[in-house]
């Protein structure tokens, strides 16, 4: 489902006087369809950049990212946008809900830019599935943090993704809500048949995955990492 090989990303680093510094070099990582994998990594280790590369938000400098048979690393920005909308769901640590839109509209927007078109009934079903059927027309600011995370989960699944990327999805939640949210993400991905690649530094979260990989082992940049973020 997902095969990453010889992936390299460099960014201009102020600490290096503006010179390009490698922050991602992943020789190999693969995920089977429906598989759930957790990546352990500390802050500033390049995990978010790695997920952005897979999602096509950032362009890779070298290497391949093959998702469902297509190498997204070789695509132009517009095609990467299309590929992201078609196959990937993204759950952000800060949720990144659109504050001016209702809960239902946030989920609807998750399926608006792809070829599948808008299915409001599905958006409602997803919100009911995450327990927010009674909050469809609320705005994010009217919800608790835990509820906002559930909206983000529903939105990530709205476009029927093959792969869900989750970046510290429980980072902003307390232990109880974090556990609840993680359970929901895993279950929802399983039900939707989507693979899940989750990054976290929380041992409690990582302990729940059968397959956990250390990002520091996977990512081997050729120069020392700039400590960002």
């Amino acid at each position: 489902m997902l095969t990453v090989s010889q992936l390299v990303k460099r960014v201009a680093s102020p600490e290096a006087g503006g010179a390009a510094v490698e922050i991602v070099r992943v020789p190999e990582l693969s995920l089977a369809a429906g598989e759930q994998v957790a990546l352990r990594g500390e802050s500033g280790s390049g995990k978010t950049t790695f997920l952005h590369l897979i999602a096509g938000i950032l362009a890779a400098d070298e290497g391949k990212i093959v998702i469902d048979g297509e190498d997204v690393a070789s695509l132009g920005e517009s095609q990467r946008d299309r590929a992201r909308e078609a196959r990937i769901g993204y759950i952000f640590q800060t949720f990144n809900l659109l504050q001016g839109y209702t809960v239902l509209e946030n989920v609807v927007l998750g399926m608006s830019f792809g070829p599948g078109g808008v299915d409001r009934a599905r958006a409602r079903q997803l919100l009911e599935r995450v327990g927010l059927g009674h909050r469809l027309h609320h705005f994010p600011r009217q919800l608790s943090t835990g509820q906002q995370q559930r909206v983000a989960v529903a939105r990530a699944l709205a476009n029927r993704p093959k792969l869900v990327l989750a970046d510290e999805p429980t980072g902003n939640l307390d232990r109880t809500h974090g556990r609840e949210a993680l359970g929901l993400i895993r279950e929802a991905c399983r039900e939707a048949g989507a693979a899940l690649l989750l990054v976290s530094h929380d041992p409690d979260v990582l302990a729940q995955f059968e397959r956990v990989r250390d990002f520091a082992e996977i990512n081997q940049p050729r120069v020392p990492l700039p400590r960002a973020g």
């Binding site: 946008d81 990144n96 659109l98 830019f113 792809g114 939105r155």
Partner: peptide, 16 residues
């Protein structure tokens, strides 16, 4: 900016 970036992350093209 943030809203626009979120929309882009959700798959909206630059031209959209």
């Amino acid at each position: 900016r943030r809203d626009l970036a979120i929309l882009r992350a959700l798959g909206a093209r630059r031209r959209t």
